[in-house]
Design a protein around this nucleic acid. Structure first.
Lengths: 244, 244
DNA sequence: CGCGTGTTTGACAGTTTTCAAATTAGGTGG
DNA sequence: CCACCTAATTTGAAAACTGTCAAACACGCG
C-alpha cells in the first residue's frame, strides 16, 4: 500500500556476520548506558551478534514473527506498521539512528507490527534473551532497558494525545517540530528537514489522508511558517508553528 | 473537567500501613508470575509495602510527580489522563483489578499522566526500586515485569490504531468489545457491562465528543446490537458489533 | 422527593475525506 | 545526459462525518 515493493517475495536482507564492536562505536552512548565500564562493554560486544542491512522497502521483521531480537538503528530510518485484521494499516512510529526497535514483541513473544526501511538502512541485532541475562548482573543495563521501554510507552502516549485531541493543522505542525527536535538532537541543523517518508506515510502516522497533509504543508508555506518543496522542508517560523 | 472534584485541595487518600500479603491474596496470579516459589512469594510480601484506598475522583498520582512506585489495582477502577500544555486533556487508559499502573513514570523519573479513581478503589503499592532489585535475582519476576511493560506498549498501539483509522461508530463498538473481554477474562458474564465512566470520559478516551458517543450507543440500540440504559449495557449481538 | 449532573436528541456549522484532474519529482534505459 | 514513465504531490469541488450549540429528559445522590 505505501511502497509497492513491500510485499514482494523476499527483500534482499544481508546479515553481515562480522560482529560490530559496541565498545568502539561512535554511537555507543546513544545506544548503551553511559556508565558501563570497559569490561562491561566487552560483554556487550559478545552479545551483539551481527548487523543487518535492509534495502529501502525491505522488512526487518513482520507482525507475528517470533520475537527474538531487539534492534538499534545504525544508519537510515525505519517505520513500524500496525496491521488490523481487515488489512487496515497504520504507521505507529518512525525510527532514526540510535533508536531501539522491537520491544513490542516481548509481551506475547511475537512482534505486533511490521518494521520496514524508509531508505537503505542498517541495524545492530541484539538477542533479547542475552540482553535480559546481562541485565541481571549489570544494574545500569537493567535501568537502561527499563527506561527504553518506558520511553516507548510515553512516546506512544504522546501519539495518542495527538490523534485524540488535535486538528489536522496541529498534527502536521507537531510532526514537523518533533522531527526537527530529533534531528537537532543528533547535531544536525534543526531547521532543515529531509523527509524520508511520503505524504501518505505521514498521513498514516497522523491519522489523516495524504491530501490533508499536503494541504496543511501548503498552508504553512503560504503563512510563511515553512518553506517546502517536495521532501525538503525548512522551518522558517518555529514559534509560529508551535502556536498553531 | 471530567469530575469537578478532581482538582480540589487534597483528595482523601488513606494509606493503610498494614502490609498486604501477596502470598495469600486471591488475585496473586493476576499480579505476579505464576512460577514463584513460596520462598519467593515471601520476598514479594516484604516488598509490597502498603495498600492505598482512593475515593471516587481522588488521585493516586499526578503528572510530574516523582516516580517511586507502581500500583496494582485491588478493587475498583481508575483512569489515567494525559494533560497537554494548554490544559487539553485526554484519557489514555482505564484500569481494572489486577492491572498495573505507573510504568510510564520510569523513563524520566516522573509520571507522565494523572491517575484518578473512577469509583472508590484500592491499590497495592510496589516500590519500584525494590521491584527492580528483585528482578535481578528472580528471572520469572524479571520476565514478568518486562512483559507488563511491553504489554503496555502493545495496548497503547491498539489505541493508536483505533484513533488513527476508525470511524466513531467503530471506536465505540471496539470500546464495548474490549471492555467485555476484560470483564469476561475475570469470570464475570461477558455480555453484561457496567460502565464506570461517563460518556464524556469514554469520548475523551476515544477521541470523540460525548454527544457522538451517545449517538453511537443509541444507534447500536436501534440496530439491536446492544441494550443500553444509562451505565448498564448489555451486548445482544456480539458479531454484529464486531462487523461494524 | 428535588436538585444537579449526566444523557439524549435535533439542527446546523465546520473540518476532513473523497473523487478527480493537473502538475511535479525521481528513477531508468536509451 | 536527456526523454520518458511512473509514482508522488498539489489543488479544487462536493460529500460525509463529527463537532457545536441548545433544549429536554432521566437518573441518582443526598
Amino acid at each position: 500500500m505505501y511502497a509497492s515493493n513491500e510485499r514482494l517475495p523476499l527483500p534482499p536482507v544481508a546479515t553481515r556476520r562480522t560482529a560490530p564492536r559496541c565498545s568502539t562505536c561512535s554511537r555507543r552512548f546513544l545506544c548503551m548506558p553511559a556508565e558501563l565500564s570497559a569490561r562491561e562493554f566487552a560483554q556487550v560486544d559478545d552479545i551483539v551478534g551481527a548487523t543487518r542491512a535492509i534495502r529501502r522497502g525491505g522488512r526487518l521483521f513482520s507482525a507475528n514473527d517470533r520475537f527474538e531480537n531487539v534492534y538499534k538503528v545504525r544508519t537510515g530510518s525505519l517505520k513500524t506498521v500496525l496491521v488490523h485484521r481487515d488489512g487496515v494499516e497504520q504507521i505507529n512510529s518512525f525510527f532514526v539512528a540510535g533508536e531501539t526497535l522491537g520491544l513490542d514483541g516481548l509481551s506475547v513473544d511475537r512482534h505486533a507490527c511490521d518494521a520496514i526501511a524508509l531508505e537503505d538502512s542498517s541495524v545492530c541485532v541484539i538477542p533479547f534473551a542475552e540482553l535480559e541475562r546481562m541485565c541481571l548482573s549489570i544494574r545500569a543495563m537493567q535501568r537502561h532497558l527499563h527506561r527504553a521501554m518506558s520511553g516507548e510507552i510515553v512516546r506512544e502516549s504522546a501519539l495518542v494525545m495527538l490523534l485524540g485531541t488535535m486538528s489536522a493543522e496541529q498534527r502536521v505542525a507537531a510532526f514537523l517540530l518533533n522531527l526537527s527536535d530529533r534531528v537537532g538532537g543528533r547535531g544536525y541543523p534543526r531547521e532543515e528537514l529531509e523527509l524520508r517518508m511520503t505524504r501518505e506515510e505521514i498521513g498514516s502516522y497522523l491519522g489523516l489522508k495524504l491530501e490533508t497533509v499536503s494541504r496543511m504543508l501548503s498552508k504553512f508555506a503560504r503563512d510563511g511558517l515553512i518553506q517546502a518543496r517536495a521532501k525538503k522542508v525548512r522551518i522558517v517560523d518555529r514559534e509560529g508553528l508551535e502556536k498553531v
